[in-house]
Simulated scan of single mutants.
Amino acid sequence: MKLPLGPVCVVAGSLFSTVAFAHVTVAGPTPPHAGASFDADFTVGHGCDGADTYRVKVRIPEGVTGVRPVDSTFGKAEVEKDGAGNVTAVTWTKAAGDVKAADSHYYHFGLRAKLPSRPFTPVFFPTEQTCRTPAGVETTVGWTGTAGEHSHDGDAGTAPAENPAPSLYLLPARLPGWNQYTVEEHVHDLTVFKDALIVWSGAQAYSFNPATQALIEKEPGMQPLKEIHPGTVIWVKY
């Protein structure tokens, strides 16, 4: 590993949010580290065609364990389990008398769980949002899309799902300073490192900070790091 070029600026930003512009999202107060416990905060930004949100059901994907939901002011949490006792879904339902006359509120739903030990992979939480009018008419929207994962076809870019499921991108554990990882997955969106100072691999480097990235591009013999292929060893400084 070549020593980093000059002073490296601290990057402002957060890794903790998920799919941009999704109507149901999940985030947390800490990065979602693979194999660690995580306090997940699901948010619902709006109702359905003017109707208030009445019920939210979050499906728990395989590998997410130790789920303990939090009752909210919206309503108490009810869990579904499989034959082995693993939580497979959590549902929050509002009391019928508390349904708003219109779509006017923003809602939070929380749970704690242990995340799978699969760094550099996404975990999707398919979610059903049911809205209800004052007359009792219900509408359900499924936020279940998982499109947007990497494809080698075409321009090898990503296309967001029409109704994207809330998701977390799992990161490896880290310490302040340099961290060495062998990446076993194809990482095509390096903004997952946007709270890192710099990412280094051989004669390539990346930084979310524009000033640091400009220094990388000016450094003789260095090339911008644009994607990471499976089996690549990287150094990341936090």
Rank of each mutant, 00 (worst) to 15 (best):
S151D: 13
P176W: 00
F109Q: 01
A173S: 15
L170D: 04
L175S: 12
E185G: 10
A95P: 08
G136M: 09
N179R: 04
R118W: 04
T146Q: 14
P164N: 01
H108Q: 11
A102L: 06
F125C: 00
T146P: 04
R174L: 10
H108C: 12
R174N: 11
L171H: 08
G177E: 13
L170A: 07
T140W: 06
V137K: 03
A161E: 00
K114T: 15
H105D: 15
P172N: 14
D153I: 07
V99C: 02
P116M: 06
L115N: 05
H150T: 01
F109G: 04
Y107V: 02
L168N: 10
A161W: 00
Q129V: 15
S104M: 02
R174F: 11
E149N: 02
P122G: 11
L170I: 10
V141K: 02
H108L: 12
Q180S: 14
V123K: 08
S151A: 11
K94L: 11
A161V: 05
N179D: 13
D155V: 12
D98E: 14
T144N: 11
N163Q: 11
P126N: 05
G154S: 08
T140M: 12
P116W: 02
G148A: 04
T130V: 14
S117C: 06
D155H: 06
A102Y: 13
L175D: 12
